[in-house]
Design a protein around this nucleic acid. Structure first.
Length: 726
DNA sequence: GACCTGCTGCGGCATG
């Protein structure tokens, strides 16, 4: 412990004295020993608020303090802008006594700050993968100067990248950076929620030595959980006025309950979907007013302008009570002021997400964490639709809380082909280099190890397809350059993100930019946005802008996104909750009644194992097998022309029962995954299954092979069908 | 009935 402190640079030590640190946390001691000792790539894995960022940067700053210039010396890559801004503040403070400059670069960072970095590269740079991508495309010639002496790369919130498009992009970028700037920095990953830390060791540097795993499982602060249930009431009309909207009385009741429990505190309220976030914010603003509460209500999500987000963040940091209704833009790492309580309205998709959200509260010493859950459910009776009577979203939330208490975390989906991101990185590398031979391109992109499934043959096949589609073309000397359509892709500002997002229009009130919307109501209609009510005055498609003015009416906006993946373990726990008789102590009386109602519904349909239950309109499949298995079965039935819906834990197929059962049996007896893939390729809307950004540019045969391998789960489906149809 | 994350350059204008 003492020797770890002694190993730090004198001015880092002085700063710690200034900040009145009395001791180093265990993860910090271990990280200092490792990074200032034998060194090498490492993963720092410890609970939220255990000081991981400092664990990485105390030794990094100590190592570069006497030699901070000549190029950027350390890069920090974060998944969220708000997180980068927060870490920027903390690092600036840490660097106060050092000669180490701290820079940040993301979409909301102004020209001035960018020019300062370009003029005198040095110290630490905080950046998103998307902004780094933009550097490769637009400023490739400056990159050697910027990163020549780069010694460290810190990947924060590593779990947010593992097994995702952005993760493959990031791993490829690190390799490309090495090729471009001749640097080979030590790679350091940070996370509090790695579902499988040992398997993450090989991710930071594929094909290279595995990272050293530095773990500190110090027990978390005490956590108080309270889950409150509310029964939904019938909506009533809002009155005669033209701009009045239907008033959802349960939303009003929900808002009132949240305000009463949280008043006088600083709270984060997670409501999952942007549409729901806006609806709840609107209700909270109105109720706070009618209750004459001084508490501020602010909104924070990714479709709001930087000004709106900055306002919310400032208000949270300021003294005085404040509640922020937010999406996962405030989920990770952020340490904004003193958050007293975390409120979760409806269920998130994963345990990891819940753990991160809970980790936003109680970050000061001796403060406890508080999680309040709220669920509005329809009262069910014997006539109710079974799916409603199971109260699936509520059940999922309780399952996630139970799994969190058992310390379960979803393992990442590693080893994926990431074919969409492969194309992204091919196009980006051609923009970066201005042109390259296939061999060079292979070395730069596939050589990163981010695309484990790519072979020289499949890579060549992808290149040929890109050529056929005018995305790339071959010059006389054999080298490859961007084609017309490839240049169009790369020139558009939406290119830099590896993930798909719908095109959006800017929402303007006078000169103020409120944010962006993909689904805009026609002029004359009303919309709730940024926590306020607006009338749509005009839409200018050419300028891609919507003009709004304040109004009294409004309804929440729609956003387009495919549903998330639920891990089979979460479904297993939901089923266990239905079968078991215990009542978690954190449920209030209504929540207990909701759980009881779920169990009564399950008993009424005789559900005790995965099963197929006939009903008047067809067959209901209660599966609890995880989203991948359900999607596979959805395809089996939809391909046979059967009308089918997915309901979290199962499916509802409509039509003649015999036909449905025969279709399932026929598939189990002779599965043809390729047929399912072909059907998905031809018929499936992007909305339902969420195809990745550049998948439309893949050779169809390759797309289908990847789809079969990664999106379908044939063995599980065969076993399940045999079980439910025997 | 179903999540979210992120994003450049430039022209036009006002200001010192």
């Amino acid at each position: 412990m003492r020797e770890a402190f002694d190993a730090l640079h004198t001015n880092v030590q002085r700063k710690l004295w200034d900040m009145r640190w009395t001791e180093l946390r265990p993860i910090q001691v271990q990280a200092i020993r490792h990074l200032l000792g034998k060194g090498g790539d490492c993963i720092l894995s410890s609970p939220t608020a255990s000081g991981k960022t400092e664990a990485a940067f105390l030794p990094i700053l100590s190592a570069i303090a006497d030699d901070p210039a000549g190029s950027v010396r350390a890069v920090y890559i974060g998944p969220l802008k708000a997180l980068i801004d927060d870490q920027f503040r903390r690092l600036e403070e840490l660097c106060e006594r050092l000669e180490v400059p701290v820079h940040r670069w993301h979409g909301d960072v102004g020209d001035g700050a960018r020019r300062r970095l370009l003029a005198a590269p040095g110290g630490v740079l905080l950046i998103t993968p998307e902004s780094l991508e933009a550097m490769f495309v637009r400023r490739a010639t400056a990159m050697p100067r910027l990163f020549r002496r780069l010694a460290y790369v810190v990947v924060d919130e590593m779990h947010a990248f593992l097994g995702t498009e952005r993760g493959a992009q990031l791993v490829c970028q690190l390799h490309r950076l090495r090729m471009r700037a001749g640097c080979d920095p030590v790679r350091i990953g940070l996370s509090a929620t790695l579902g499988d830390a040992p398997s993450a060791r090989g991710w930071l540097r594929p094909g290279g030595p595995a990272a050293t795993l530095i773990e500190d499982s110090a027990s978390e602060t005490t956590l108080a959980i309270r889950v409150r249930g509310l029964w939904r009431r019938a909506p009533r009309a809002g009155g005669e006025r033209e701009d009045a909207i239907e008033v959802d009385t349960s939303l009003v009741e929900l808002a009132r309950a949240i305000l009463l429990a949280g008043k006088g505190n600083t709270n984060l309220i997670f409501a999952n979907a942007k549409s729901r976030i806006e609806a709840l914010a609107d209700a909270l603003v109105r109720e706070a007013e009618s209750m004459q509460l001084a508490d501020a209500i602010v909104v924070h999500h990714g479709s709001l302008s930087k000004e709106m987000r900055a306002h919310a963040e400032e208000r949270l940091r300021a003294a005085g009570p404040c509640s922020a209704v937010c999406s996962n833009t405030l989920e990770l790492g952020i340490d904004i002021g003193q958050i007293d309580e975390v409120v979760q309205v409806s269920a998130p998709w994963s345990v990891a997400s819940l753990v991160q959200r809970v980790g936003r509260s109680g970050r000061r010493a001796h403060a406890r964490r508080v999680l309040r859950g709220y669920f509005v459910e329809d009262a069910a009776d014997a006539q109710s639709v079974v799916w409603d009577g199971l109260h699936l979203e509520f059940l999922r939330a309780v399952a996630l809380i139970e799994l969190m208490l058992e310390r379960f975390l979803e393992p990442p989906h590693l080893g994926r082909a990431h074919a969409s991101t492969l194309i992204h990185q091919i196009l980006s590398t051609l923009a970066e280099t201005g042109g390259a031979t296939a061999a060079v391109l292979y070395a730069r992109v596939v050589g990163s190890g981010a695309f484990a499934a790519a072979t020289p043959e499949s890579f060549a096949e992808v290149l040929r397809e890109l050529g056929r589609r005018d995305l790339i073309e071959q010059m006389g000397d054999g080298s490859l350059v961007l084609g017309d359509r490839g240049q169009d892709q790369v020139d558009h500002y939406t290119f830099y993100a590896a993930f798909h997002a719908p095109e959006e229009l800017r929402v303007l009130h006078g000169d103020d930019v409120l944010g962006t919307l993909a689904e805009v109501p026609p002029p004359g209609e009303h919309v709730i946005f940024a926590g306020r009510r607006w009338r749509v005055d005009a839409i200018d498609m050419e300028r891609r802008a919507v003009f709004v003015s304040p109004s009294k009416g409004g309804k929440p906006p729609a956003f387009i996104s495919p549903p998330g993946l639920v891990h089979p373990e979460v479904h297993r726990k939901m089923r266990e909750l239905l079968l078991g008789g215990n009542e978690p102590a954190y449920l209030d009386d209504v929540a207990k009644a909701i759980l009881k109602s779920s169990r009564a519904t399950a008993a009424r349909v005789g559900y005790f194992a995965p099963s197929a239950q006939p009903f008047a309109g067809g067959l209901r499949l209660f599966l609890f097998g995880g989203t991948r298995v359900h999607k596979t079965l959805y395809l089996v039935l939809a391909r046979a022309g059967i009308d089918v819906d997915v309901y979290d834990i199962g499916l509802e197929a409509r039509g003649a029962t015999e036909n449905i059962v025969d279709t399932l049996r026929a598939f189990a007896n002779a599965p043809d995954p390729e047929g399912l893939a072909a059907f998905a390729d031809e018929k499936l809307e992007q909305r339902r299954f969420g195809r990745e950004k550049f998948e439309p540019f893949l050779p169809p045969s390759l797309w289908r092979a990847v789809f079969v391998r990664e999106e379908l789960d044939i063995p599980s489906v065969v076993v399940m069908v045999q079980g439910i149809t025997s």
